[in-house]
Computed example of a mutant assay.
Amino acid sequence: MQPNLNTVPMKDWGLGLDEFVVISGPCSAENEDQVVSTAKAVAKSDKVKVLRAGIWKPRTRPNSFEGVGEVGLEWLNAAKEATGLPIATEVANAQHVEVCLKHNVDILWLGARSTVNPFTVQEIADALKGVDVPVIVKNPINPDLQLWIGALERINQAGITKLAAIHRGFSSFEKTPFRNVPMWEIPIELKRLCPEIEIICDPSHIAGNRDIIPFIAQKAIDMDMHGLMIESHIQPSIALSDAQQQLKPAALVAMAAELKLRQPESTNKEFKNLLEEFRSEIDELDETLIQQLSVRMNISEKIGEYKRDNDVTILQVNRWNDVIKRRLDMAKALGLSDTFMNKFLAIVHEESIRRQTDVMNSTVVK
């Protein structure tokens, strides 16, 4: 089912936001001085338009620091008064929503652990009915695009039109350089299915390590994201949560100044003409690829028929291992990455096996 969302762009939220927004502040509000000092420091960047801080922290293990609670909202408002920045925090249930509204929080966000549960999302959506407050929704922990879209739809159906999404990466059992694997293809598909939804990237949670935050931030901009949420702490080494992924405010300001903002379109006529030539070449090549893949799958079906008629198994591991090695060797010689080719070959093999299985299960007509 095609999503149908009714949303307002961030620049029209009435908070003085630009078309590109940086949201920054500590992972957790720890005390008033920490919140206000961090806010004043990050506000030195003209790109930082919103102050963030966690008030309630959903933690994996009990007895960890789980946030200061409602008093933290008073500190956030003190920081807002000192800097003029709108304030944002995470809500995980209806009570959180009510407390935030009482304290005039400007933006609410749903965390990844909430988005993964439709019951939680619906509870929050019900608490938001009749309210005009911006809400941003993080992707679920697991790479499930439909869960992400479903959460956005639930909030939107509650009457919230000031709505955006946050890409914060996805959990993985594989060891990677990231805390949460970016899987850029998922937010890209969200943009394709829901072009009206603006997406903010959260490099802090993707990285889990402050050293690679600038790389992820620029990558997000290059992928036409509409903003960044980056954690910053006045003394990250003693932070009570996620110390490794928080930047000092001075580092945040310096990084923001170095970011290269890009536009999705250009008014340069020569650029447009050459771009159209390149795109036409790609269109022709894509059509040829699709035609050749169709031919390949037809041959796979014939192989399936031959195996069926001769009582031979579909999967022949030695043959497939040989195919992978030869294809990867060829791809490497042509400058294609192993990662791309492994994914491509796996998809092609899966479809080939499916076609042969269908043939195997079909009735032979004599």
Rank of each mutant, 00 (worst) to 15 (best):
His226Ala: 11
Trp109Leu: 08
Asp46Tyr: 08
Ile324Asp: 02
Ala257Tyr: 00
Ala251Pro: 02
Gln34Met: 13
Met1Arg: 09
Pro249Ala: 04
Ile160Ala: 05
Leu328Thr: 07
Ile197Cys: 02
Met330Ser: 12
Glu265Cys: 13
Asn4Cys: 04
Ile186Ala: 12
Glu287Gln: 13
Val36Arg: 00
Arg154Val: 01
Gly208Trp: 02
Glu70Arg: 12
Val359Lys: 04
Ile353Asp: 00
Glu198Tyr: 03
Arg61Asn: 14
Thr357Ala: 12
Leu252Cys: 04
Val91Asp: 09
Leu334Pro: 04
Gln246Val: 07
Leu85Asp: 02
His103Cys: 05
Ser280Met: 11
Gln235Thr: 15
Ala165Phe: 08
Thr89Lys: 01
Arg210Gly: 05
Ala239Asp: 00
Gly84Leu: 06
Ser237Trp: 03
Trp75Leu: 11
Trp320Thr: 13
Leu110Lys: 06
Lys325Glu: 12
Lys44Arg: 14
Phe173Pro: 06
Phe344Ser: 14
Pro62Thr: 13
Val295Gly: 09
Asn209Gly: 05
Val121Gln: 12
Asp222Ala: 10
Ile212Thr: 13
Arg59Ala: 12
Phe344Glu: 09
Thr161Ser: 12
Ile303Leu: 08
Asp18Arg: 10
Gln34Tyr: 07
Leu289Gly: 03
Arg327Tyr: 11
Val312Phe: 11
Pro118Cys: 04
Pro143Met: 05
Asp286Gly: 00
Gly16Gln: 06
Ala92Cys: 07
Trp148Glu: 07
Gly208Pro: 01
Lys302Tyr: 10
Lys138His: 06
Phe344Leu: 12
